[in-house]
Simulated scan of single mutants.
Amino acid sequence: MTRYRLFIALILLMTCTSAHALRCGNRVVDEGDRDFQVRERCGEPFWTESWFGVDIIGRHSPLERHREIEWIDWYYNFGPNALMQRLRFRDGVLYAVESLGHGVRALGEKCRPNMNFIGLSSGELVARCGTPSSRRDARESTVFRPARGIEEWRERNVQEWVYDFGNNQLNRILLLIDGKVSQAEASPR
């Protein structure tokens, strides 16, 4: 019996993927894969979102370099019996894989005016409610000055999305910060 359990454990160990990997059909994508490889294995995402950041190399040294980094989130919906996935790329290389809430049969079919929007990512929001009827984007910079001569810059992506629920319903105005809903309010049509 012990050999049988050892054999099963060995088989399971050989077939496991890393905790940060994603299985697309019979193919696997993992951190470090390039965006074209992921697209080839998983297909087109249903929603993407991109922004730029800055890496500062050599801060507070005689030579300081600033390098622009492109970040892109891809969202995949594998249906209501599976979790949606967010794949984050840094300069075209898969940086992180994150499981989200359950997927949907069709984009936009699970939206209700009174649902709890707080904490949803932009991809989950699009999956449940479709694209917003109105969208405004802005960028904010925050500067921290912990001591004289020291500055730390942080960028925030701020978006306002409006969903119109039709006659006799209130609009929902959602504030998204860095791709997540942080506020939701009702507004008359």
Rank of each mutant, 00 (worst) to 15 (best):
G130F: 06
V104E: 13
R86D: 13
A96R: 13
E109C: 02
P62I: 02
S141E: 08
H66K: 11
E98K: 09
F117I: 08
F78V: 00
A82F: 14
C111L: 00
I72Y: 02
S121K: 03
L94P: 03
N114Y: 14
S99P: 11
L63F: 14
E140I: 07
F117S: 12
P80D: 12
V126E: 01
F117L: 11
A96H: 13
A138T: 12
R135T: 04
G103H: 06
F117M: 10
P80Y: 10
R105N: 14
F78G: 01
A147P: 03
P80E: 14
G108T: 01
S133N: 13
P62R: 04
S134Y: 07
R105K: 08
L125H: 06
A127I: 04
G119R: 05
Y95L: 08
G101P: 03
T131Q: 07
V93G: 13
V97K: 02
G101R: 05
G123P: 02
S121Q: 03
L125Y: 06
R105T: 13
A96C: 02
Y75G: 03
D91Y: 10
L94C: 04
S133G: 14
T131A: 08
A147K: 03
S141N: 05
R128W: 07
R135I: 05
H60I: 05
T142L: 08
R145L: 11
N116C: 05
G108S: 05
I72Q: 09
L83Y: 13
R136S: 11
L94A: 03
R88K: 14
Y76L: 09
L100S: 05
E124P: 07
F144H: 14
F117T: 09
R88E: 15
S99N: 15
P113A: 11
R105Q: 13
S122L: 04
A138K: 05
A147G: 04
R86H: 08
L83V: 11
H60G: 10
A106R: 07
N114M: 11
G79M: 02
L63R: 12
Y95W: 12
P62Y: 04
Q85Y: 10
P80G: 11
R112W: 08
Q85I: 15
S133W: 06
A138N: 12
Y76Q: 04
S61F: 05
R90H: 12
